[in-house]
Design a protein around this nucleic acid. Structure first.
Length: 578
DNA sequence: GCCGTTTTCGGCCCGACTGTTTTCAGTCG
């Protein structure tokens, strides 16, 4: 039987949705596929389990029809609607509508009139002037498509949040300095702390809108102005990143921030609720439909209050349960950066790090931490000079010396072990017993089957000295797919053995992802946050881990390194065993 | 295709900007 995880099934649903849209299907029909895909990605139970127990309709947006189709997919590997639609349209059309400026309608024309079915086809057709004279494709449109193909190629991979957030902060600062600006912030997926972002949305409340638009047109690194109106300016930077700056009146600021923070799914659900109350929500405010009187909009709190609910933190706004919680007044109090008392994963010059333990300690003091764990690579990772027992002894002496100064964060003697093909690790018990904290992770075997890879992890968790499994899936955003694991089994074993799972906060890992975190929370698995720093300034990456944790509905109580040093020690396996 | 405090049918969110269209469709967020 084929094995699918939730994202894999969601991808199929999205493909069908895109192709249905291109084929001209009813809007609500193709939207329902995307809606179900979105819900499935965030759903805390495994699709295979749901299918086996005939509980697929418990996923919001999955009804009888989609449940039956998903059953067919997991049983036979084929999705009936996908088979039907690809008989008429090639699935490469899905990439065609990824080109900025090219939507489903134009894609359909290109395919039917010229046989263009991919971005490569489009480029060839433009070069051969085959679009000239085609209805709806004037010279300006063709010019935009050429730029769109370029942007697609350069930027088809969404940018890492860490590469965009500092830049967005600078834009916001520049907007704040303009005369007439009352407030400014970035919105969109960046504000929701998605792990990658496609563009930057900046909202400015100002009494001098033209000054804001002028500033937006002349932003540093602006390479091309995509749109320049009275309320919205879009530019593309030299790095291929699109920045949209919108200006609104101060009394509209909260509504605009809410609206452009999204997500689209969150807003759709919100507006449906508004409608039921005789209200309308748009980027200018909340209005009574009956007399078009504006009743809220200056702040986001007002907007949500007008709809009878508390304000969900931006990280939760994905329409995956936050609206019900906001209405019921049961929103979680999410983890905050200030809750973090220490960083539990970092490397030093002893292996492949660039900073010394002392430099990491200095940075940790700046961040106000009570403790950090020095977790260099263990012996079997020879490539990066993994530490033998002699080297460990030297590192421990150094740590003892630093701790004896009594003036900074406490350094825990840690290690990042390698889980080998059998689930065994670098050192025997006599060595493992001497650490304060032990992490273990996969560093090889990316192509292994789910069964083999899962067995390695489960066996490692049974080791009484292994406190934490770090970067569970081994994924590297935009470079390496996650290893295929039976997440449900991993979570169950983690809960059973008291093994914590790390949320690796290095920007291109952010592993666990938000869906894993929700599963972990539900299973009662404890989480640790570590930056996996290889250089002292990278200890600052903790903010990205916290953002991801918040997306996963994680609260401070579920995170071990929100505890005091003694509290943390008591929760590690060696602390619990005695 | 989904769903229910307007329930088993008939809804399903809303506006700015652009280009080509001479009155509006397509795209985007």
């Amino acid at each position: 039987m084929p094995d699918f995880d939730n994202p894999a099934v969601a991808d199929v649903l999205d493909t069908v949705g895109d192709l249905l849209e291109i084929s001209g299907a009813d809007k609500f029909r193709f939207l329902s596929y995307h809606k179900a895909a979105h819900a499935l990605r965030a759903f805390p139970e495994d699709v295979m389990t749901l299918a086996a127990e005939e509980r697929l309709t418990e996923v919001p947006g999955v009804g009888k029809k989609l449940a039956a189709s998903i059953m067919a997919l997991v049983d036979s590997g084929t999705f009936p609607e996908l088979e039907a639609i690809t008989a008429e349209l090639p699935d490469t059309l899905v990439e065609l509508v990824q080109v900025p400026g090219l939507g489903p309608k134009k894609a359909k024309v290109l395919y039917e009139e010229l046989g263009v079915a991919s971005v490569d086809d489009l480029e060839t057709a433009i070069a051969a002037h085959r679009l000239d004279g085609l209805g709806g494709f004037g010279p300006k449109t063709i010019e935009n498509l050429v730029a769109g193909i370029d942007a697609f190629r350069r930027h088809r991979q969404r940018a890492l949040i860490a590469d965009v957030l500092p830049f967005a902060d600078r834009i916001v600062s520049a907007m704040r300095e303009l005369g007439g600006t009352v407030d400014a912030a970035f919105a969109g997926s960046l504000r929701r702390r998605r792990e990658t972002v496609g563009d930057v949305d900046v909202i400015v409340a100002s009494t001098e809108p033209e000054a804001v638009m002028q500033a937006a047109r002349t932003l540093p690194r602006a390479e091309r102005i995509v749109a320049g109106g009275e309320t919205k300016t879009s530019i593309v930077t030299t790095g291929g990143l699109q920045v949209d700056v919108r200006v609104v009146a101060p009394e509209q600021y909260g509504a605009a921030l809410q609206y452009f923070t999204g997500s689209a799914e969150h807003n759709v659900a919100l507006r449906a609720i508004a409608k039921g109350m005789g209200l309308k929500v748009n980027e200018y405010g909340v209005f009574r439909i009956a007399d078009d009187v504006r009743i809220a909009g200056a702040t986001e709190d007002d907007v949500y209050a007008a709809l009878g609910m508390a304000m969900p933190p931006p990280e939760l706004r994905e329409n995956t349960g936050e609206i019900a919680a906001a209405l019921a007044g049961t929103l979680p109090r999410l983890l905050e950066l200030s809750d973090i008392r220490g960083d539990l994963h970092m490397h030093t010059v002893a292996t492949d790090g660039k900073s010394t333990a002392e430099q990491n300690r200095t940075k940790a003091a700046e961040l106000g931490y009570d403790y950090i764990a020095i977790t260099d690579h263990a012996a079997n990772l020879r490539m990066v000079g993994g530490l033998g027992v002699d080297a460990l002894e030297r590192q421990w002496e150094l740590i003892d010396e630093l701790n004896s100064r009594g003036d900074g964060p406490y350094l825990l003697k840690g290690i990042e072990l390698n889980i080998d093909d059998n689930g065994d690790v670098d050192y025997d018990s006599s060595v493992l017993a001497r650490f304060d904290i032990v992490l273990a992770s996969l560093h090889s075997g990316w192509g292994q089957s789910r069964d083999v890879a899962t067995r390695r992890v489960l066996r490692a968790m049974e080791n009484p000295f292994i406190d934490v499994i770090s970067h569970l899936t081994g994924r590297v955003l935009r470079r390496r797919d996650p290893i295929d694991l039976d997440i449900e089994a991993v979570m169950a074993k983690a809960a059973e053995t008291g093994t914590a799972l790390e949320l690796n906060s290095y920007p291109d890992r952010l592993d666990l992802d938000d869906a894993h975190l929700r599963i972990a929370k539900r299973a009662g698995v404890r989480i640790t946050l570590g930056t996996d720093s290889h250089e002292a300034t990278q200890l600052g990456y903790m903010t990205y881990g916290v953002g991801q944790a918040r997306r996963g509905w994680i609260e401070a109580a579920g995170v071990l390194n929100t505890l005091s040093l003694d509290g943390l020690r008591a929760q590690l396996k060696r602390g619990r065993a005695v």
